[in-house]
Amino acid sequence: MTTTLVIGLDGHESGERVLAYGTRMAGLIKDCELLVVYVVEWSPYSFQTPEENAQRHKRRDEEISLATERVLDPALAKLKEAGIKARGVVRHGHVADILNAVAKEENAEQIIVGRASSQGLVDRLFGSSTSTLVMSAHVPVTVIG
């Protein structure tokens, strides 16, 4: 049976290390697939102008293609080069919720993410996406420093 590992990328430099760790893990497991996930931060409860609403579908498509082009494709190319089986997916929502949901859907063994890249005031007050994920995930989470 294939073992699936979810790799969360956020476009920051820690992504390289996350990817490197994922590659190493995949090498150690006999039949392993990496599922690279990029999450566009989005809430269905935010407030928008009528014009933003009218263009939302278009913007969503743009966000997905931009994330695919800039983050997923290069990552998948690297994994392919290393001979690792991998897929990529872009989703909208909260990082922790989505990574956890994808892991559940795909019956993944583990989620691998980078340490929170920003340490702003909001993160300090409410906790970063990474710490939320660690607290709420249904599968083991590996955090790469």
């Binding site: 409860y45 935010s46 407030f47 928008q48 989703r91």
Partner: peptide, 21 residues
């Protein structure tokens, strides 16, 4: 709401936008 439609305009957003008008 279908989770696959995440990122599109939600019912809440359409209502909130109309209300603010």
């Amino acid at each position: 709401s279908d989770p696959n439609d995440a990122g599109e305009v939600s019912h809440f957003q359409a209502l909130a936008t109309a209300l603010s008008g």
